[in-house]
Amino acid sequence: MSANPIPYPFSRPGPLAVPKELGTIRQAPVQRVILPSGDEAYLVTRYDDVKSVLTDPRVSRNLNRPDAPRVSKNNMMFQDSKMDPDPPEHTRVRRLVMKAFTATRVERLRPRVQEITDELVEAMAAKSPPVNVSEELAFPLSIRVICDLLGVPPEEQGRFRRWTDHFLSTGKYTREEIRGALGELNAYMSTLIEEKRERPADDLVSALIQVHDEDDTRLSEYELHWWCRLLLLVGYETTASQLGLTVAKLLAEPGQVQALRADESLLPGAVEELLRWKLMSGSLSMLRYVTEDIEVGGVTIPKGSGVIPAVESANWDGKVFHRPDDLDIARADNPHLTFSVGPHFCVGAALARVELETALGTLLRRFATLRLAIPPEELRRTEGTLIESLVEIPITW
């Protein structure tokens, strides 16, 4: 472990490249890092160790402590003193949320995802290329799907882009700007929940309200609001950013596009491989707090420290992934950790996979000569936000 902490997240040598540190950082199991807030944390680098930390009961997600490190100086992000993100309380609440967010409900959305995708892709086809696939497909698809799932009226969907942008800021907005935007969101969610309580429908907010009102263990009113807000904010931004980066990275690899066109059965594997590359960001959102001394790879991480299980490093571990620096859509064994593992496995993973497979497959079928309109190295990444994407992704055909 280096004596001096290094800045984290790592910078990228190119818009679609992984940080150069991923080639060497696993030489040490733990690395001290400095976060955007200026606080320090320990970065866990190896696949097996990352999995272990993600499931270790001594590693807490509760950052509502005076000595806990912060991601950002201006934004508390996922910190909320009224919510306990650790078992057993988190297990109780998550189990209740999953009653509403079932695989059956997600699978029922597949035809709707295809319908929205077809509509957006045909609108793209009617325009003169190049078009920005991020604004024409990735973001509108993701926000329409999550709003359909939650029961948000279509005319309200445009407002969530700004609220999400503020919620995920690590340096883009001031503290006052973030508080103002989140105040607007909280007021909106309160109104939406009351409307759904009076006129329930076949949507996730109505289902969560039912869990709140009828289940023996119940969601509290605050928990109900918190989860509705979180699912809306995170449920669309992550998928939209991943979809845009997926399209860009795949089109930058013509050989992989050709292989996928020749055999569309490779599509699910292609999605998993592009998820493994974790082009959106590092693992700042995985920041944890150590409640007791723990040993990782022979290194003691002391009680009271911040620790980050570096999923992007785990996904690049050559002991688990053969030739990890190759994009291989036919990779047979791909146990990537992009959706995490254990008690905090992403509740929206199934929906994200449906959207990514549907959008990518539809694009390739609709445009036989689909390609980037500019060289990949000229793409630009967003800055100052927890979830990185590309500023613009111009495509042509």
Results as ranks from 00 to 15, higher is better:
Leu275Ser: 08
Ser389Cys: 12
Arg112Gln: 14
Lys303Asn: 09
Val121His: 06
Arg162Cys: 00
Ser72Lys: 04
Val341Tyr: 11
Leu266Gln: 06
Val205Thr: 15
Thr246Ile: 11
Glu355Asp: 10
Leu274Thr: 08
Leu168Gln: 10
Gly244Trp: 01
Gly158Ala: 12
Gly304Thr: 07
Ser313Ala: 13
Asp86Ala: 00
Tyr188Gly: 05
His212Glu: 15
Ala252Arg: 01
Pro87Ile: 08
Asp293Met: 07
Ala123Ile: 06
Ala248Thr: 02
Ile6Lys: 09
Ile146Lys: 03
Gly348Glu: 12
Glu292Gln: 11
Ala201His: 13
Met1Arg: 11
Arg366His: 13
Ser142Met: 04
Met280Gly: 03
Met189Glu: 04
His166Trp: 00
Gln242Leu: 13
Leu168Lys: 00
Pro153Leu: 00
Pro254Gly: 02
Thr385Ser: 13
Asp202Gly: 06
Ala68Thr: 02
Leu260Glu: 06
Glu392Trp: 00
Thr396Arg: 00
Ala350Asn: 13
Arg353Cys: 04
Leu150Asn: 04
Met98Phe: 09
Pro15Asn: 08
Thr382Tyr: 04
Ser220Thr: 15
Gly235Pro: 06
Val247Ser: 05
Val234Tyr: 09
Trp226Asn: 12
Arg162Lys: 15
Glu253Lys: 07
Leu250Cys: 03
Thr369Asp: 15
Glu89Gly: 04
Val133Arg: 01
Leu379Gln: 00
Glu119Thr: 15
Leu192Gln: 11
Ser2Trp: 02
Phe160Trp: 04
Trp226Lys: 11
Leu219Gly: 01
Thr358Trp: 06
Ser340Ala: 15
Leu150Glu: 05
Thr117Gln: 07
Asp86Asn: 10
Thr170Tyr: 01
Thr396Met: 01
Ser220Asp: 05
Arg159Asn: 13
Ala207Leu: 09
Leu182His: 09
Ala314Met: 02
Ala332Asn: 10
Pro335Ser: 14
Thr238Ala: 15
Asp48Met: 09
Leu43Val: 07
Tyr222Thr: 10
Pro7Ile: 09
Arg365Asn: 14
Arg26Asn: 08
Lys51Thr: 14
Ser285Arg: 10
Thr338Tyr: 10
Val347Asp: 09
Phe101Thr: 08
Val296His: 04
Ser72Leu: 05
Thr164Trp: 00
Val97Asp: 02
Asp328Trp: 12
Gln157Ala: 09
Met83Arg: 12
Val247Ala: 03
Thr55Asn: 12
Asn334Ala: 11
Ile116Asn: 02
Gln31Arg: 15
Leu22Ala: 03
Ala359Ile: 11
Ala314Thr: 03
Thr239Gln: 01
